[in-house]
Nucleic acid binder design. Sequence first.
RNA 1: CGGGGCGUGGCGCAGCUUGGCUAGCGCGUCGGCUUUGGGAGCCGAAGGUCGCCGGUUCGAAUCCGGCCGCCCCGACCA
Length: 570
Amino acid sequence: MRATQYYAPTLRQAPAEAEIPSHKLLVRGGFIRPLTSGVFTYLPLGLRVLRRVEQVVREEMNRAGAIEVSMPVLQPQELWERTGRWDTFLPQPLRSEDRTGRWFCLGPTHEEVITDLVAGEVTSHKQLPLNLYQIQTKFRDEMRPRGGLMRAKEFTMKDAYSFDADWEGLDRSYQAMCEAYLRIFERLELEVLIVEAEAGSMGGRDTREFMCLNENGEDTVLMCDSCDYAANAECATSRVCEPEALEGPGGVYERIDTPGATTIQAISEMLDMPAQKMLKTLLYQADERFVAALVRGDRDLNETKLQRATSAEQLRMATAAEIEELTGGPVGFSGPVGLPDEVEIVADDEIKLLRNAVVGANEADAHLVGVSVGRDFEVGRYADLRQGAAGDLCPQCEDGKLQAQRAIEMAHIFKLDTRYSEELGALYTSEEGERKPMVMGCYGMGVSRAMAAIVEEHHDDSGIIWPQEVAPFDIVILLLDPDKTELAEIAENLTVQLEETGYEVMLDDRDERPGVKFNDADLIGYPISVIVGRRTEESGEVEVRRRDGEEQVVAVSEALSAVQKLAAQA
RNA sequence: CGGGGCGUGGCGCAGCUUGGCUAGCGCGUCGGCUUUGGGAGCCGAAGGUCGCCGGUUCGAAUCCGGCCGCCCCGACCA
């Protein structure tokens, strides 16, 4: 390919709205252009990279026995009503109506479509297991698109769905996907960590995320500093540590005035007492009833955990009016002592060990000091309700502590069980002649996000350093002075020779100054460049240079083998 | 959706506080000459309803109101 006949517009300055390296470099390098918030055009270079990432994914999926299909983006409301997700899927799918008033959504995921398909096609255990996947554009009306391709409203995802006769089969399918994913990320040169995760809108169990540790990621991973425990902070758990018991007044607690102290921090300062010796009481409406959730003062409540502990379908914080009615006191002074019986108290496991704590008095401007569980109030149920945080004790080993790291969620896999197959009638007849729902798994991977993650992980001050597997071109030939016909001829011959060997080659034959070409080559991130210039004229030599540093000067006739040698070292 | 910031030729910005003549600067673009190993120099040129609507005023990029868009932080997710 000749640069003069290509479209690869680079920008000297990054647009003001881009902040993270991948966003800046992908725009500057001429890979993508924004259309509107969270929506991008792939320019020729960007499309090449995307296609090559897809190809890596495709090859490894195929190798793992999955079979590629392509499902519709446009999906009818009726189908989503059958799983009850039309109104509950988050983030809300983008929807629209056709001219007859039927509603559709732009597919944010394809459990419904694939299960409906399989339900109509697969009927025998002899057809199982089956793993179908696609690489396709997904639409999600994200609350906040961010970081260019990192989180977009429209993005490319690989989604696979496995159908098995039983749980043992699902375990095998799941394991095969895990292994395929590890191979994919290895080829993409992304270091990933498998962590425990939440299932979210998808449902399911044994869900795992493949995380790429990176400061520009949107997730936080908590990982043990001494064993292999790692989990997304949104579901991480920890071993309960015993806080030092407070020296309290013994038999009874005491009511004290705490004017205006509506936050733990305020009371902590007022009483000069650490927050972990206080007890935080949060009132929630869980479906039709109210619950009081208790966590240590220095802890945050994890709502997902509370929802699970209460088995509530809908969970929301109580309003100020509800709090006053239930507790008799205003917001900020709630406590577990003297709550009405209909309010169930659900406490975090750490509360079991808290003695002589400070709690709200359920009246304005007052707290109770020296309150203990079991003596002054009863807990209906204990559960893990606390938000995991750095410094927590590892739940898996004896002496580890959890460390927090930012991470990019590259992929998410789920064991779905039979929820969708039951709701959508994906049944098969077993060897024994029984009709049974298929056991499903689903396996998502962000393909366009992977492109962004690769840039986050592989760049320097001058630009992108693409791994060879996904580079838009393998080699750029920098023809520094295209007006010199003998040099142009050498460069063109080299281009043909390298292309015939199987490389994708960009010949930079533009009438630009050498500096411009060097800088663009660095920015775009071609893994290897071959420089045809003054040295070639003087001594018949070219420079063969790897983007990440190494360089050789060889005779023109040796260029091919030098390229092959440098490529092999990567 | 809550909080913050921004919107001025293709890109990056100044001007706005304290309203006033032809709206500037750098980069890029087009033409010409000279240059050619890390984003060249000189000469010439094109390109802007100052996000949109309304208001105040003799006069609005500038002041006021509303709306729209974009980015960042937070609650969701590949």
